[in-house]
Nucleic acid binder design. Structure first.
Length: 286
DNA sequence: AAGGTCCTCAACCGCCCTACA
DNA sequence: TTGTAGGGCGGTTGAGGACCT
């Protein structure tokens, strides 16, 4: 069934659709070189293209732009996508903004085809079948998350943010989630943005546990000293005496822990190819 | 070899946000 | 304050290639 061309409610007829030809690409490239990006409504006219402005913009941003990186996503990129998706959800443009040369469309497609729910189910099915065939079982050990010192500092300086928790003041006037805060940081909405962004990314990307943190984990804490723990332990009463914030346990519906456990499994698949191949054979289609 | 199914990704659609008059 | 237009985004579709039976 042919699609109707729609452009902000105005139906456009006779506008070319579908795959772009090399001639069209050349015309668009020439036009952007000459007049620059922006003013997309003028581009079809100036370029002599029988395309709607959105089609021109999309073609440029997703395909013709000079710095676009094509080809396979690296493991680093995949890892970053997983982490950012956990924080930001389907904010593909924000995620793509942190992956040089990648477009939102690329990231979205990559997620849907390689990292999304369907792939998750396929992977689980493969794991189940491998187990059923009496292959060596791959044991996934839970990896507790630690609260970075950066976040703790933010908390103390009035930043009501904590991973996986919702904070609000006693009168309930302010409530935020880690996703919203992450979006603000990434999009640079905060005034003292640069330093905070650096710190935030540092804590996000810091996958290595310090010796201190490892020792704390071994003793059953979560990487904070006693005083810090007192304020953040989930089962604690809802009001923190020192900060005056109510602390709410994240509702199970958000299923953060399940997501996390899957991501770890997925990441192990990326990093542990040898193990997969020896225990249950290579995973097809990943 | 042929037909069917699955997968990937470029492109489209419709909605939202913002700027401006 | 309201209406309009442009820019941008996320969700969805469908063509075409790869793979399977």
């Amino acid at each position: 069934m042919p699609r109707m061309a729609a452009d902000h409610g105005h139906r456009l007829y006779g506008v070319r659709k579908g795959a772009w030809s090399e001639e069209e690409d050349a015309l668009l490239r020439e036009c952007i070189d000459k007049y620059g990006e922006g003013k997309w409504h003028q581009v079809p006219l100036k370029a002599g293209l029988n395309r709607c402005r959105k089609s021109c913009r999309l073609r440029w941003l997703n395909y013709l732009k000079p710095n676009i990186k094509r080809g396979e996503f690296s493991m680093d990129e995949a890892d970053l996508i997983i982490r950012l998706h956990k924080l930001l959800g389907n904010r593909w443009s924000l995620i793509a903004g942190r992956l040089p040369g990648r477009t939102a469309n690329d990231v979205k497609n990559y997620w849907n085809t390689h990292l999304g729910k369907k792939t998750m189910l396929r992977l689980q099915a493969l794991m189940n079948s491998a187990a059923a065939a009496d292959y060596q079982t791959k044991v996934i050990k839970p990896r507790p998350r630690t609260f970075s010192k950066t976040l703790v500092q933010c908390m103390r300086s009035g930043q009501q943010q904590q991973q996986g928790l919702h904070f609000c003041t006693n009168n309930g006037s302010k409530s935020s989630t880690i996703k919203d805060d992450a979006v603000d940081l990434i999009s640079g909405k905060d005034d003292d943005g640069v330093d905070k962004q650096i710190q935030w990314w540092k804590s996000l990307l810091d996958d290595q546990l310090s010796d201190q943190e490892l020792a704390a984990l071994a003793s059953g804490s979560c990487g904070l000293d006693e005083e810090e723990q007192a304020g953040y332990e989930l089962p604690q009463p809802p009001v923190d005496d020192r900060s005056g914030y109510k602390i709410y346990e994240e509702r199970p519906k958000t299923d953060f822990t399940n997501e996390l456990s899957f991501d770890i499994e997925l990441w192990d698949c990326f990093t542990d190819d040898d193990q997969w191949q020896t225990s249950s054979g290579p995973i097809q289609g990943l």
